[in-house]
C-alpha cells in the first residue's frame, strides 16, 4: 500500500488515459503515419516505373 502511494506520487497522464482520450491521439498518429508510409510506397512504385522506362531506352 505504501509502495503504491509512492508510485502514484509521480505525476503521469492518468486522467487522460482513464478518460480514453489517449485513443484519439493514437488514432490521429496512426492516420498520419499510415499516410506517410502509403506515400513512400507510391514514390517507390514511381521509381520502379522510371527504372523500367530507362531500361527500355537502353
Amino acid at each position: 500500500m505504501k509502495l503504491l502511494s509512492f508510485l502514484q506520487s509521480v505525476e503521469m497522464a492518468d486522467t487522460m488515459r482513464s478518460e480514453g482520450k489517449i485513443y484519439v491521439v493514437v488514432a490521429g498518429l496512426v492516420i498520419i503515419v499510415t499516410g506517410f508510409l502509403a506515400y513512400l510506397f507510391l514514390l517507390d512504385r514511381k521509381v520502379t516505373k522510371l527504372e523500367k522506362e530507362v531500361n527500355n531506352l537502353k
Binding site: Q8, V10, M12, A13, I22, V26, L29, V33, D44
Partner: peptide, 28 residues
Amino acid sequence: KFLGAGLLLFSVIFGFLGETPRREILNE
C-alpha cells in the same frame, strides 16, 4: 518494406498505449 511499416505503426500505437515505469522528472 511492409515489415518496416508494420513495426513503425506498432511502435507508434504501443509507444503511447503501453505501460511505462513511473519515474521522477521523466514522467510521461
